[in-house]
Design a protein around this nucleic acid. Structure first.
Lengths: 199, 199
DNA sequence: ACCTGAACACCGTTCAAGT
DNA sequence: ACCTGAACACCGTTCAAGT
């Protein structure tokens, strides 16, 4: 009774988000049912509509949570990393891959929901913050002279693509080998060669 | 009457696949309804179940079509490319990016459906054929001495990750700049540096 | 072999009404 | 402000029955 009352006091929205995340993690986004979610939380099936206008809105809010989380995770990883660009890149790569593996379906959702033309302003802002964080890591490398000069969009795109591609391929189990541990070091070396200054 | 009869003669399965592909392209995978599909094709709502045991089976078959198509598209692009590794890599990258842009939702489906634990044998075989085609492009580069030596899984993973990441990011409109045309050349140069032999 | 029609249990969404 | 209950139109899936 007490726990149920709490939903009447403002955290049904948060409960819906975490419940939805659990569902997509365990059974995929297609298995998400608003009515089942409401049932599990002990509210009526119409209650969620007070917090999310429809299912799509809930999914967008979830994607936003994902972008915020990966951005924050990356920040934490970089705080603990050393000063060398190679070390910071490795730490960032590790964080991204770990996130992708632990949140595979959420990561899918984050990037697939942008196909929807009605993507909210908030969502694209969060996505942009994440992209910019990756780019600013490259900018660090440029300042240290370990990354070639040039417009960040050009120089950073390769690095971002490689990390994103590797993380999503690992998450979808699409790489020919698991490469436990050593695979990432190899990847970081490849990236460093790709973006190193000439000569 | 004639057109309807054809569905009674063996191509309802193909019609369901192309219809489903049109739907996910235009309205996303969440909007796919078997009943609506059947209605549009002039058959009863129960007819699709003769060809696909459930919705998931249809989506898996669609993903399989996607893997076959990108593999075939890539083959065609490489036939028309020159002999130099740089040229062939550029042609492959162009083909992948074009496919990703033209089939954004299908590409999503191809990689997200693998999260489902019941993914068919056929599907994972098609996915593996596609991965192996990418890898054999790298192997070409190795034979020409333009790609560093080493196990293909290690050397090729970086290249594959970069191409896959770039293609999916472009498809989901997640890159800071459109980089029309020139962006891909820059990316190919980055990849070539990353996988070039030492010294 | 392939499809139909009815049936079942479940959805998402809306809206008057309650507290 | 937030939630309920009923209502509506729509699903996916199954299965006896038709051809």
């Amino acid at each position: 009774m007490q726990t149920r009352r709490r939903y009447h006091h403002g955290d049904l929205r948060a409960a819906l988000l975490t419940g939805a995340e659990d569902t997509i993690r365990e059974k995929g986004p297609a298995a998400l049912s608003l009515r089942e979610l409401a049932r599990d939380l002990g509210v009526s099936h119409a209650a969620p509509s007070r917090h999310f206008k429809d299912k799509q809105a809930l999914l967008e809010a979830l994607a936003l949570v994902g972008f915020d989380r990966i951005t924050q995770t990356m920040t934490a990883a970089l705080v603990g990393a050393g000063e060398s660009f190679a070390g910071r890149l490795a730490a960032g790569a590790r964080a991204y891959v770990d996130f992708a593996v632990a949140n595979a379906e959420l990561l899918d959702l984050m990037y697939s929901i942008k196909h929807a033309p009605e993507a909210s302003e908030e969502l694209s802002a969060a996505s942009q913050r994440w992209t910019e964080q990756m780019m600013s890591l490259i900018a660090e490398g440029q300042r240290r002279g370990e990354v070639r000069e040039g417009p960040l969009e050009r120089v950073g795109t390769g690095v971002f693509s490689t990390l994103h591609g590797y993380a999503t391929l690992v998450a979808s189990d699409s790489l020919p080998e698991e490469m436990p541990g050593g695979g990432l070091d190899e990847l970081v070396a490849y990236i460093l060669r790709g973006c190193a200054p000439d000569k």
